[in-house]
Amino acid sequence: MTEVTMTGDGAPRRSPLHDRHVALGAKFAAFGGWQMPLEYAGGGVLREHESVRNAVGVFDVSHLGKARVTGPRAAAFVNSCLSNDLDRITAGSAQYTLCCDDATGGVVDDIIAYRYADDHVFLVPNAANTGEVVGRLRAAAPGGVTVTDEHTGYAVLAVQGPASAGLLAGLGLPTGHPYMSFAAGRLAGTDLVVCRTGYTGEHGYELVVPAEAAGRVWDLLLAAETPVAARACGLGARDTLRTEMGYALHGQDLTVAVTPVQARLGWAVGWRKPDFWGRTVLLAEKAAGPARLLRGLQAVQRAIPRPGMAVLLDGAQVGAVTSGTFSPTRKTGVGLALLDTAAVPADGVEVQVDVRGRHAPMRVVTPPFVPSSVR
């Protein structure tokens, strides 16, 4: 988990939907400097997880950062800093990208970039890293380009699951746009943005809503008359869902000590671009081959891998678990681990995870652990 940041008085930040979470009996946890719902009364992680896989769930992910880069050639500036090639997409599209450290190539944060125009890019970094990302961009910005931190100005509501399109369409919101694109909508008397993005592996959307209107939009989503009612879901289910897909979490699977090459995120790097932070060191690492790689683990017997647990092969440590959970869909333990590439060169190798002194056998595999339905 990433570093916790606090408000000026030392208290964690709260979502604009905090009172609604309390009313729903939420259990809270600190995440990225925010107090966010982990799970809700009457549901729990397993039911919330199953709602997203089989119907539709609604998450408050307002802790995610929001930053806006504007001015002449703003998109070109962002493209010269972040890893992916923003010129691969056009206005109205989104892209997964990385902010890397220029000296080490390590991942400062992973980000979704929304390209509005050549002079307008909206960025969604992770909660605790927003200030760092904004600070680095501001320090590098040329004259005329403005980088604005809008972290608390907007709420983000993730509507995820096979019934998500029907739910939003019933409320008059756009749903037909392609994966990794966005469209304008209006609900509860406010303008909002409907993004075809998410972190669950299911067909879904993320709504970027002005903070003052978040409560009205949340209420309408949960009260909508659909064949299957939407369920409020917390960050516990969000974690089991993303782990089943093998999606990396910054602060665990991704850190400033882990490069995109090691994390197997080379697809999110514009290798042919002339400029991006970390380019020189990442090209060298790609050419030489990384000393470690992020791989999937699937339990052979009853056991659950957890972050920090040692991974062993023939009695010697060959890596460590970075993320791990019980998969409600597969009914087994699954996880991600950074493993030594010389010792574990390919999938199929059976390793042991030190689960509180017991060496639990697990097979090295390539995620996802369940099929993706995002498109």
Rank of each mutant, 00 (worst) to 15 (best):
L86P: 10
S15L: 06
E285H: 03
G234C: 01
L235R: 08
W34V: 11
L38R: 15
H21I: 05
G289F: 05
T7M: 10
F77W: 04
D354H: 01
D9L: 15
M6V: 14
A11M: 15
R330S: 06
V121K: 04
M36C: 11
A237V: 10
A29I: 14
A55T: 08
T226P: 07
D347A: 03
H250W: 14
V52N: 08
L336Y: 13
D118V: 13
H250E: 01
W271C: 01
I89C: 03
P210N: 02
G198R: 12
H63Y: 14
P227A: 05
A29R: 14
D87M: 10
G357S: 04
V52I: 12
G92S: 08
F326G: 04
A184H: 08
V261I: 07
T325Y: 09
A337M: 11
R306Y: 12
V61Q: 07
L171E: 00
L46A: 15
A288S: 09
Y96T: 02
A337H: 11
L313V: 00
D101H: 15
R231A: 06
S15Q: 05
P260M: 02
P125H: 10
G43N: 09
H151W: 15
Y205R: 13
R231P: 01
P345A: 04
H177V: 01
A291F: 08
A223C: 03
G71L: 05
V159K: 10
A165M: 04
V351F: 04
Q262G: 07
T7A: 13
R186P: 00
G348I: 13
V349P: 06
V334L: 08
Y116L: 02
M180T: 12
E150M: 11
A343Y: 00
L157E: 03
T7G: 15
D149P: 13
A26H: 04
W34A: 11
L207D: 07
M362G: 05
R302A: 06
E212G: 09
D354G: 00
H359K: 08
A76R: 02
V228D: 04
T70H: 03
P260F: 09
Y116R: 04
R272Q: 10
T329M: 14
G270R: 01
L86A: 09
G315A: 03
T190Y: 12
R292A: 14
V349N: 02
L282C: 06
G71P: 03
S164N: 10
V334S: 03
A140T: 11
A184E: 08
P367G: 01
P210S: 07
R196Y: 11
V194D: 09
D118K: 09
A343Q: 06
R295L: 02
Y40V: 07
V78Y: 00
A316R: 13
A211C: 04
D109A: 08
L338R: 06
G198D: 07
R13A: 13
R186T: 05
D219K: 03
A211P: 09
A188D: 05
V364N: 06
V52K: 09
G251L: 01
A23Q: 05
S93L: 05
C195E: 15
V321H: 10
T243A: 10
H21K: 08
V134G: 13
V78W: 00
A248Q: 14
K273T: 00
G204A: 14
F122A: 00
D347G: 02
G266H: 02
F182P: 04
V351Y: 01
D9H: 15
A141E: 07
M6R: 15
T329D: 15
E225N: 02
L283H: 07
G92L: 10
G189V: 02
A67F: 12
S327W: 05
T366R: 13
L82V: 12
